[in-house]
Design a protein around this nucleic acid. Structure first.
Lengths: 202, 202
DNA sequence: GGGCCGTGTTAACGATGATTAACGTGGCGG
DNA sequence: CCGCCACGTTAATCATCGTTAACACGGCCC
């Protein structure tokens, strides 16, 4: 994982990635120039090419990183909560919410800029995303066996949309605080699944 | 207004807007060239400038149109179902689902490319969106009075994310058909609200 | 203490892309 | 018929942007 050691040069790369993520999320991949990204980390323009092969490479690393993190975290949670279906699902939901609330720009990029990738990268990201979805589908179907595959899959996608909606919220204080927001999102997600199963295919 | 009469030349403009919406949704505003848009309607490149002041104007017209349609439809539904809170909410949900399922590109643009607008247009679109949200918040709070304002607002945003998730789905047949999908989304949305209210602020 | 490497800098270069200019053409009202 | 107007076309313009070149400099290993 990225927290491997106190690696020194890693700092700059990660700083760049962080700022690039924010900018990409705000204005879109094509809407951001390399000069802006450079400026955001205190160096100017082409200096970035000492750290990345190009703008595309930054986006690729971001998206692969996000998908990988989500999948890894999801697998870990499934393994840790072994045996208890409800616990597994709640843990997945909790993990996704944490990610959505703490890394807003990344979550935004994740389902917005996938198509700007080179074919090979896009294929990799899609594969990671698919595995993550399958993790959820399996967990959901354990808790709600009455859901057929297609319903479960569609519901999972929809709940992702629900959880990922956080970035689209007006800044100030007309909203619950972080913890209350997390709790609310959790309830919303669980309630959605429950309702999906309620009269499913009936 | 645009729906004034059986105006003939309207056809071209609307055809252009439709193709532009599809392209913008697929590859992002900055990712599409005017030549591509032109090619999509059989004319080439700068011919578009006979119909629109520029690329920005197309996006502006699309976004204003979408927000306006949503708001207008929402207001109409609220008025028609006058008096019965549950009916109002269900009607709003149904209307939004129809829109999300039938005009995928527009729904995508709606919450993705807002920041590419001129200040005045963006302000207008945001105002229309805000009114639409308020419509929902009011309807939700009528059905679930135990929800406080902030919770209701956040829940509405989240449910929008849920309903708008349709575009992000793999093309083929691993998913329910249109009507089944609409029913499923409706259940998911209602279930989410119900769960939000269940132990709200308790 | 000299050279190499990591990290930057600024000045081209080349492509792309939005917009405008200059120019056609077919239909239609007078 | 004539000319105007809606609608297009292609060629030129001008800015922007990603990327590369050429050059600088501080630290660290030997």
């Amino acid at each position: 994982m990225s927290t491997s050691a106190s690696a020194p040069s890693t700092s700059r790369r990660e700083q760049i990635l962080k700022e690039a993520a924010r900018l990409f999320a705000d204005r879109g991949f094509h809407g951001v120039g390399v000069d802006e990204i450079g400026a955001a980390v205190g160096i100017s323009g082409p200096g970035l090419y000492r750290h990345f092969a190009g703008k595309d490479a930054m986006l690729a690393e971001l998206l692969v990183g996000i998908s990988g993190q989500l999948l890894t975290g999801g697998k870990r949670r499934v393994a840790e909560a072994d045996g208890a279906p409800e616990v597994v699902l709640d843990s997945l939901i909790e993990g996704h919410i944490d990610f959505a609330l703490d890394d807003r720009p990344l979550i935004t990029l994740h389902d917005r800029e996938l198509d700007r990738l080179r074919d090979s990268d896009r294929k990799l990201v899609r594969q990671l995303q698919r595995q993550y979805v399958e993790l959820w589908v399996a967990a959901v179907r354990e808790v709600y066996p009455e859901l057929i595959e297609a319903e479960a899959r569609a519901s999972v996608h929809a709940v992702f949309g629900l959880l990922n909606s956080t970035p689209h919220l007006g800044r100030p204080g007309a909203l619950p605080g972080r913890d209350a927001m997390a709790a609310l999102l959790h309830r919303l997600a669980r309630g959605a699944f429950t309702a999906a199963a309620a009269t499913a295919t009936a």
